[in-house]
Nucleic acid binder design. Structure first.
Length: 506
RNA sequence: GCCGCUAUGGUGUAACUGGUUAACACGCCGCCCUCUCACGGCGGAGAGUACGGGUUCGAGCCCCGUUAGCGGUACCA
């Protein structure tokens, strides 16, 4: 391998950047970065009906969010149609292709006949003499330009870095079309033509490209240019082994969804990298650099992997389990362990978007408080959006009460008086920190002849609206004396209102 | 129908060129910790490697067949 390696990611802008596409882009990128190669972005927008500028923007956004930076492009395939046509003409002139006048109806009939006869259908069009062609053209008969697959006994052979040497006999390859009757090129041609133009050395794409690779190799050979090396990646399927699609899985199949749901780009990348690839040892948490260093096609699996998306047509049993459990675990792992200076900007984005950011967080004491808070609460979060949902009570006085938590921990009627009393006691605590608050609360509990747990759990609900969270004394310390006491006293109104609001889901 | 790719616990993967009781992670269950939940720690259930043959002293790894999934068989990409 040398530094002359050139790879490309070539999505069609007909929808969103989906998980499979992101993984393909990632492997291209890893390979390029590992060997000092060039990563090219090409937009295959020849299907004008379905291609949209919005889809292009979505794909670029997705790649940028993931940090998969490209070195060249984006090139737009639609701008090179004339060149593709020229190549087809060249193939025609050199006898590697021919004009095929069969109509769609004729082809269908042939196919159906083969079907009923249960025989193979490998199409070979009828070729005509120059005179006949002139005659047909004079009549204005439409034709497609079809590749003439060698009629000899031979076979096409190519090397795939994942699947090894592949061979397909000429006899099993039909004479495929290069140009439609309106002169527009087909994918199989355009794709190969652009790979040639961009001097792509390694074609790394989904396994669904494997079956028509022999046809492209035939094109390379006819054009007299060396074939690139191929690497066909296993597909990513859902739990029912169906291809991931927006139609079936909704937004959960798109990269944007993970961005909006608070995934950390590195974590998302790490998670999808492990579908169809492994570093070969037991490591699972790998930084970009570690992935680059460990990447190797020899360790790429040949079997399609499953990304366990919950069914899109059913409500989630647990809203926190909105996607593949392992991906979620991966994200939580990153959230808990990544350096704070890299997490903080991401948290800031979330807070700003939710209107919870305050200028005091930028420096000094406010900064210190923010850091301390994030450190404590990230421990049990799984996504960045948790900071503004479950984390909201730390940043704002208006937050929702989980009815279940209220029912469970504020049920004891005596708390309506006791909590405000506790506030009076806490008001007097000399040095506001976890230890002193704990001492005061425990003494208070003892004086009331009740268990400390009663007050701890009730306070958690009063201060955060939730029944779960960090060590309660830590929470008191973070929320501060004033706000803590105010929330303890507000228990009366809370009790009066019946507290039915529920937490937004993350 | 024909051509091709694939097949290890529920999921993702590991198992050097065939060599001890198939490993790790997620998920699940239990215990510990404990003011809750999570984290963490400890332990457990769960595959004999799709199925059937064959080669071999020995096969998840090699060969053949079957089945299943996927892809191609388009003037889709």
């Amino acid at each position: 391998m040398t530094s002359s390696i050139r790879v490309r990611f070539a999505p069609s802008p007909t929808g969103y950047l989906h998980i499979g596409g992101a993984r393909t882009a990632l492997f291209n990128w890893l390979f390029a970065r590992k060997y000092g190669g060039v990563f090219i972005l090409r937009i295959e927008d020849t299907d004008r009906e379905r291609s949209t500028p919005e889809a292009v923007a979505t794909i670029l956004d997705g790649l940028r969010w993931l940090g998969l930076d490209w070195d060249e492009g984006p090139y737009f395939q639609s701008e090179r149609l004339a060149e593709h046509r020229r190549l087809a003409e060249q193939l025609l002139a050199r006898g590697h292709a021919y004009k095929s006048y069969e109509t769609k109806e004729e082809l269908d009939a042939l196919r159906r006949a083969a079907e009923t006869a249960k025989t193979a259908f490998v199409f070979r069009g009828r070729e005509h003499s120059p005179e006949e062609e002139a005659e047909l053209d004079a009549q204005g008969r439409p034709y497609v330009i079809r590749f003439r697959v060698p009629r000899t006994e031979g076979a096409v052979t190519f090397y795939d870095l994942v699947h090894g040497e592949q061979t397909k006999r000429y006899a099993d390859i039909e004479d495929f079309a290069l140009l439609r009757s309106d002169g527009s090129p087909l994918y199989i041609l355009s794709n190969a033509a652009d790979d040639i133009a961009e001097r792509v050395t390694h074609v790394i794409r989904g396994q669904d490209g494997l079956a028509n690779t022999p046809k492209q190799v035939l094109i390379y050979q006819a054009l007299g240019v060396p074939s690139p090396t191929f690497a066909h990646l296993p597909l990513i399927l859902d739990g029912k082994r169906a291809k991931l699609s927006k139609r079936k899985h909704g937004e959960a199949a798109t990269v944007r969804f993970y961005q909006e749901r608070g995934f950390i780009p590195d974590a998302f990348l790490n998670a999808i990298a492990l579908i169809g690839w492994s570093p070969g040892d037991n490591r699972e948490i790998l930084s970009r650099d570690e992935m680059i260093a460990a990447f190797d096609f020899a360790q790429v699996s040949r079997t399609n992997g499953i990304f366990n998306l919950p069914p899109a047509d059913q409500p989630l049993a647990d809203p926190r389990q909105f996607t593949d459990p392992k991906a979620l675990w991966m994200n939580a792992e990153y959230l808990k362990t990544m350096p704070l200076d890299r997490l903080l900007p991401l948290v800031q984005e979330q807070l700003e978007a939710a209107g919870l950011w305050q200028s005091t967080f930028a420096e000094g004491a406010g900064r210190a408080w923010l850091i301390r808070t994030v450190e404590v609460i990230r421990e049990r979060f799984r996504t960045l959006t948790d900071f503004t949902t479950y984390g909201r009570p730390y940043f704002d006085d208006s937050f929702a009460f989980d009815p279940e938590a209220v029912r469970k921990h504020l049920r004891d009627a005596r708390l309506t008086d006791w909590l405000p009393e506790l506030a009076d006691v806490l008001e007097q605590v000399a040095d506001w920190k976890p230890e002193t608050v704990e001492a005061a609360l425990r003494a208070f509990a003892e004086a009331k002849g009740a268990k400390a747990g009663l007050f701890i759990n009730a306070a958690r609900v009063a201060l955060t609206g939730q029944s779960v969270g960090p060590s309660m004394f830590e929470v008191f310390a973070l929320i501060g004396r004033e706000r803590s006491c105010a929330r303890l006293r507000a228990i009366r109104e809370q009790a009066a209102m019946g507290a039915t609001a529920s937490l937004p889901v993350g």
